[in-house]
Each structure stands twice: as structure tokens, then as C-alpha cells.
């Protein structure tokens, strides 16, 4: 195994371990912080998949934005100081376990049966000697083929931002 492979397994391990930690821990704040490990690991895996822009977007949006929002949400709402951690009780463990195991089995079978090497885009990617950045392609596509969805998304986000600012700035009248 090459050095790169070790790094790959390290990040894969980090992703899974922190994901399992999120599931098992009873402290919701720890779970949120463990998300950092998961997000980082996932973005590292994106880098291994040659999707450098996606990896950066993953860190920027999920770690820089969503995670911080979650942390603030937990700190401001949950009364952690009195150790009243949010504990979700499993009401129907039988169905949960069956559902989970079934889904896992189906996915495993699907992955094992799929013949990835015969896929066209993987063959193309393997032909290329070096991995080129996806930046340029993403940029060009966003500005040409996908300019309408891109702009719609921008307008929706803008509306959401303005709405949030409006709600936050409203003075409560008695």
C-alpha cells in the first residue's frame, strides 16, 4: 500500500469513527463537535475522488457555516449547564434494526454486484495521466448550461437572507 492509500484509510476511518461517535454519544454538543471530524473526513475523501472544488465547498459550507449554526443552536437552546442532554429514546427498536440491516444489506449487495470499471466516466478518468482541477469546468458549466438554476438558487438565497433579516429586525409590539 502506498503512502496515499494510508492517508485514504486514515480519513475513511476518521469519518466512520466520528459518525459512529455521533450516534452513540449522549451529549449532543459532543455529537456536534464530532461532526467536524465527519465533515473533514468526507471532504478529504472528495479530494481523493478528484473533486477538489467539492471538497472545499464541503468545508466552507458544512464546517464554516452549518456546523457553527448547529453549535450556536445547541448552546442557545439546550440547557447543557444543568446536564439535561437531549437524549432520544428508541421507541421502536425492532423496526429500526430491521430497516437498518436491510438497507445495509441491499447497499452492500448493490456495491458488490456493480461493475465500476465498466463505467464510461471512470474509464475516461483513468485514461488521463493527471487529475485536472474541476474548477474550470464547474465555472464554465455554471455560467452556460446551468446559468438558470444557478441564478434561481441565488435569488432564492437572497430572498431567504432578506426574510431572515426582516424577521430578526422586527421589534415586538405590545
Amino acid at each position: 500500500m502506498s503512502f496515499t492509500a494510508y492517508i485514504f484509510y486514515f480519513f475513511a476511518f476518521m469519518t466512520i469513527v466520528s459518525a459512529i461517535f455521533i450516534l452513540t454519544t449522549r451529549n449532543v454538543l459532543y455529537a456536534a463537535f464530532a461532526l467536524l471530524g465527519t465533515f473533514l473526513g468526507v471532504s478529504a475523501l472528495y479530494v481523493f475522488a478528484g473533486a477538489d472544488f467539492l471538497a472545499m465547498a464541503q468545508i466552507m459550507i458544512y464546517i464554516g457555516g452549518v456546523l457553527i449554526l448547529i453549535l450556536f443552536g445547541i448552546m442557545l437552546t439546550n440547557r447543557i449547564a444543568e446536564h439535561q442532554y437531549l437524549v432520544s429514546s428508541s421507541r421502536n427498536s425492532f423496526f429500526a434494526v430491521t430497516g437498518g440491516v436491510t438497507l445495509f444489506g441491499v447497499l452492500i449487495i448493490a456495491i458488490l454486484k456493480a461493475n465500476f470499471t465498466s463505467l464510461l466516466w471512470i474509464q475516461e478518468a483513468q485514461k488521463k495521466a493527471s487529475v485536472n482541477s474541476t474548477m474550470e469546468k464547474i465555472g464554465e458549466n455554471l455560467m452556460t448550461d446551468f446559468v438558470f438554476p444557478f441564478e434561481v438558487a441565488a435569488v432564492i438565497l437572497m430572498a431567504a437572507l432578506m426574510g431572515a433579516a426582516f424577521i430578526a429586525s422586527q421589534v415586538v409590539k405590545k
Partner: peptide, 9 residues
């Protein structure tokens, strides 16, 4: 830009 925003965590 993204990696230094991690120090907020």
C-alpha cells in the same frame, strides 16, 4: 479561506 474558517470551531 475555508481552512482558516475552521479555527472558529
Amino acid at each position: 479561506i475555508t481552512i482558516i474558517s475552521m479555527d472558529v470551531i
